[in-house]
Amino acid sequence: MTTLLAALALAIVPPSIPAPAKELPAQVPPAQAPSDLAPVPATPASPIAIVAVQPFTIAQPYRHRFRKDGAEFTSGHLLVVRAETGFVQPRQVAEPVLCVGSQTAERLWSDPATGLIVAIVPSWIERAKDGTERAGDPSTDLAWFASPELPERVDAAWIAAERARAETARATGGMRKASTREIVRHERLDAASQDALIARASELLPDPAAR
C-alpha cells in the first residue's frame, strides 16, 4: 500500500490561496448621487388639493389606530388628497401626520406617481368659539400635514397644538389652503364592515396598482 501511495505522492507546492488583498485607499471623494426619496417637506403644509370626499357609516365599529387616544368609530369620510411628493412617498422615519380638523387621518394608500393619498377620517365635532357644534367636514375644514410623528403616538393635545400652528401659519400667509376646485363629493356609503369600507376606498385610487 505504501508503495502505491508513494506513487501517488504529490510534491509540496504552495497552495493556491490568494493572500488577502489590502484595499486601496479611496480616491478623491466623488460627487454624490441624488436620492429619489424626496426630503421631508416643512410643516405645517396643506395638501395641494382635496380631490374627493365620501361620507360613510360602518355597521361594525372600527377602532381608529392613527392616534394614541383613538376610539372606535362608526362614521366618517373617505378622503383623497393630492400632495407634494415628499408627503406621499412612504418612509421609515417619522412622516408628517395628515390631520383634518381635530382628527388624524388613517392613510390607506399613497401613490407617489400621482401624488394621491387615500385616507379614512373618522368623524369629529367642530366647536366654534361661541360654543356651537357641527360635524366636521374634510371638504371645508382645515386639512394639513402636521409635524412628523408616528400617528399611534399622537393625542388630542398634540393635534390641538399642531392645529394652532397650522392656523397661525395660514393666517400669516405661511400656509395656503388646499384647493377644492376639482373636488368630487360622493354619495354617502353605508358599509357593513371594514373590508367593505376599504374595498370602496380602493376604488377612489385612480391606479389600483399603486395600492
Binding site: 466623488p30 460627487a31 454624490q32 448621487a33 436620492s35 429619489d36 421609515q92
Partner: peptide, 21 residues
C-alpha cells in the same frame, strides 16, 4: 447598498457617492 436594495420594489433611496451604488 441603500435601504430598498433589500427588497424588490421600494423607492430608490440611494444616497452616496456617484458610481458606488
Amino acid at each position: 447598498a441603500d435601504h430598498n436594495d433589500f427588497n424588490c420594489c421600494g423607492t430608490n433611496d440611494f444616497s452616496g457617492p456617484a458610481g458606488t451604488a
